[in-house]
């Protein structure tokens, strides 16, 4: 049980791929113009990661070391294509918005990194959990970054939710700042860099405050 807790903590906070490992920055920067965009791409990534970790783990002793990378890539690419096709068929409008960034999940280094670093050495269930939690941690970062950029840039929240959940969800869109002119910088690429930098800074600040609060007790995770 303890192991699962640690995997979850690592994925969501301690080793968060968006804020700590800084892997997978391409979608982080490009797709976070709104909360819905950011979170849906993050969720796709989490699904791909869970599935690829779960499929690599059982075959980890079957694959000779020399060709493990090509085989892993093959598995990840097949899974991504599969998700791409399914989304194209059943979530067409969301697929149109995320566009090229769905197939690009293949090249997201966080996917291969977790396959190689975790799934290739661990049993199926922890591997799947690790993949999902790492991806979900990224999804949360994308959601927060997307949400902040959306509020500052357009003054709304959850715009585009109808693309994911159908036209009836359009009523969920929140206008946070009515009569807002919009601060375009937040939506444009520089806003992504500045936003991510501020998020990383806030995480580091939270950590350092936590450390300052309990200066002498060495945490059990420190040995790790």
């Amino acid at each position: 049980m303890n192991q699962y807790r640690e995997i979850t903590e690592n994925g969501l906070w301690k080793q968060n791929s968006g804020l700590v490992q800084l892997l997978g920055l391409c979608p982080t920067l490009a797709m976070t113009v709104s909360l819905v965009n950011g979170f849906s791409l993050g969720l796709m990534t989490a699904l791909v990661m869970a599935a690829s970790n779960a499929s690599v783990s059982p075959i980890r002793r079957l694959v000779p070391t020399e060709i493990r990378i090509p085989v892993y890539i093959l598995i990840v690419a097949a899974l991504v294509t599969l998700i791409d096709l399914l989304m194209h068929a059943y979530f067409h409008s969301l697929h149109a918005v995320l566009g090229i960034f769905i197939p690009l999940i293949v090249t997201n280094c966080i996917v291969l990194a977790r396959v190689e670093a975790f799934a290739a050495k661990n049993p199926v269930v922890p591997s799947a959990l690790d993949g999902f939690m790492m991806g979900f941690g990224l999804a949360l970062v994308l959601a927060v970054l997307g949400g902040v950029r959306e509020i500052i840039g357009k003054g709304t929240l959850l715009s585009g939710i109808d693309l994911a959940l159908g036209a009836s969800a359009k009523a969920w869109v929140i206008t946070v700042l009515p009569d807002y002119h919009g601060f375009l910088l937040a939506i444009l690429p520089p806003g992504a860099f500045i936003g991510l930098a501020l998020l990383i800074a806030s995480k580091n600040w939270l950590e350092s405050r936590k450390q300052a609060a309990q200066p002498m007790t060495p945490s059990p995770a420190a040995a790790h």
């Binding site: 020399e66 085989v71 093959l74």
Partner: peptide, 11 residues
């Protein structure tokens, strides 16, 4: 050969 076989099988 066995390595190639595994690769082909996965493909």
């Amino acid at each position: 050969i066995s390595t190639a076989g595994v690769m082909i099988a996965f493909s």
